[in-house]
Design a protein around this nucleic acid. Sequence first.
DNA 1: AAAATCACG
DNA 2: ACGTACGTGATTTTT
Length: 877
Amino acid sequence: MENKNRLLLIDGSSIAFRAFFALYSQLDRFRAPNGLHTNAIFAFHTMLSSLMERIQPTHVLIAFDAGKTTFRTEMFADYKGGRSKTPDEFREQLPFIKEMIEKLGIRHYELANYEADDIIGTLDKMAEAPDVNFDVTIVTGDKDMIQLVDGNTRVEISKKGVAEFEEYTTAYLMEKMGLTPQQFIDLKALMGDSSDNYPGVTKVGEKTALKLLQEWGSLENLYANVETLKASKMKENLIADKDMAFLSQRLATINTQAPIEISLEDTVLQPKKIAELGVFYDEMGFAQFKSKLLTDGAVSDDAIGIKEEISYELVSDDSVSMEISPDDFFYLETLGENYHREEIIGFAWGNVDKIYVSKNVDLLKQLNLPENTYDFKKNRVLLNRLGVQLSVSKFDAMLAKYLISTTEDNKITTIARLFDAGYVASDEEIYGKGTKLALPADEVMFEHLARKIRVLAQAKPKMIQELVDNEQLQLLNEMELPLAEVLAKMEIAGIFVNQQTLEQIGAENEEKLALLTREIYDLAGEEFNINSPKQLGVILFEKLQLPAGKKTKTGYSTAVDVLEELATMSPVVAKILEYRQINKVQSTYVKGLIPQIASDGKIHTRYIQDLTQTGRLSSVDPNLQNIPVRLEEGRKIRKAFVPSKNAILLSSDYSQIELRVLAHISGDEHLIDAFNHGADIHTSTAMRVFGIDKPEAVTPNDRRNAKAVNFGVVYGISDFGLARNLGITRKDAKNYIETYFERYPGIKAYMENIVREARDKGFVETMSHRRRKIPDINARNFNVRGFAERTAINSPIQGSAADILKIAMINLDRALTEKGYKTQLLLQVHDEIILDVPKEELDVIQKLVKETMEEAMTLAVPLKVDENTGQTWYEAK
DNA sequence: AAAATCACG
DNA sequence: ACGTACGTGATTTTT
């Protein structure tokens, strides 16, 4: 870039106001720890950063309006009159925006009796003096300042959000409006300005004003010749409002001679006040800005006093002996995430005072490793690959953090921030990401590992304290930690998948797809990419003229529910649905799974234990919790999942566990009764809600509707959702719900209570004190708040059900181990477990599994378990 | 990187 | 009037 001074002048008042509205929808989310709204502060920071980045100014000034009265109000008392009061939520943020600007090393200025425009205009003129000759960029939300555009000065008007600006240069102004900057003032003189509340000439708006200026060039010339205009209402108005026109002209003119007490030298960009900014970001709750601040350079890390020195001892020799204290942490590093395949690149152990690092994996085979861990399950699996049985963990910082709060991720950087436990770089900074993922120099990695150990050691007591305060210590020690061991066993065990079976299914699918593709091209009359919703939309809704129903953000929706509506209208639609179904199976479950079969003939998934908001597990790499079952076409995939030699697959699932949990935690007598009498729950609901006497009188359709209502109840029902699901009117859905609540008053009470509880405490919890924060519960926005309310209703239900299966798995694993059975737990699918059972153990194991699951927790209703066995997963259903 | 779609409980 | 059912992950296309 040219070595010229660049001055950036920002209308702080106007941009702050724009910033406020740019994130207005997020008003409730942006709250400082002390409750202050911060949406405008945050958006202002974002806008400012991107401007600084783009313009790279040498000088910056942010001007603010000083107060209500200015020299313009002396000229015209109603100037800016009639404006609605600025919102309190905005006004309270202004002082903090100014504070932030100062800490960013930028000057701000305001002057009694003058507006920000005048300060900017005056400085702009100073910067244009021949001996100075700066490039000037003016940023504002207000078009008035376009009059300042000239060869040195461009004006950027904030358009939308925080990043979109419209840049006015003399050329652009001429092209867009056919005006010079001076004429822009006259334009406003004629048409007035409704937001500044001066009227201009009666009945003259933008179109008329532009035409007059095209013809006469200026306000002065227009009025010098006004008598020559042919008689019209407009001529009368021009003559009558002449004084107002010239007054408006003066009001619209920016004063470039304001008595400012600030010079260009005062606007030189200063270095950021790093330490103060760090504190400020903390106060505002701006974690991202703070971590950015820290990563921007080592100098700043030290300046802020967070990146203290760290020392560690490198251990490369196998023949080291070590003493372990109960406070010591152990940490194991891999480059990638999939610990079934990744190699150990380094590890560290120690405490706040003394830290060891190494990359000699042979050491791991002989050392006695510390019992405080981070991601114990990963460590267990990795060491198992080395033939080492890692001893039981006493504390897992990752799981502890997950239990304390699910709102953020559970990375060590996050733990460091939340528990004020020192500095650690992010893995991305050290190892890169995506294609740039690579091993750094040894010293870089070792320091990084040492810092992780120190953060963990410093955070542990604080985390324990918080777990105690939350009544969650038991949840960690007796549920998540033991479960991590069980899951490690399951992941290590893996499940046999028959590749030939998958390939056979794959070959059949390919044939069907080829045929369907030809048929679809035929019916459509052309070839196109059937996988592209965009191209498909064009074919269906433009070429074939089918009625487009729903729309997505980018165009026509071609989702199943839309296509099903169209199926009767054109034969191509049915073919497309069939194609989609088979293609899904082929791409995700045939082509996706085959490469996941390891050399042992098994698929080893990973269960993510610290992710879901409710306490469920998730399964990745591959996901074995969404193998098809509902449609036969996909269900066949399950034929490839087989037991080990001389064994059988046993699938055990809880029947209606979420409704049973709901019955228990709501205490609703009717729902409890139904379960206690062993009734078919959807039939029973149908009888109560639709007023049917005998179960025999419940039609399949009644039962179907009741089932949808029951689902809805668990999800936090709304008439809209139920209506959409059942294809009935909202009014009917509303009736269903009202009747349901009348007949099940305990459920209604539960919903009201849990929402109130969320409001009071800011979180809800499961039967085992698993928490979910509900920050949006008091949102002003109807949708956001509605979502939060449904979350508050659903989370304790889904979460308690998850807790129950977790307990069952732990108890079952314990029983299997104690009695020395060879049966293996293989998979978990939310309300179901799949086991590999040697044939000779089958009878006793079936009994044991059922018992263990049904007795996992004692509720006001019985827990019921169904079991199925088979030579494949397909049969075990 | 986001959006659309669809697989599961 | 607003415009949604709760919780996930993988694949493909589009930007």
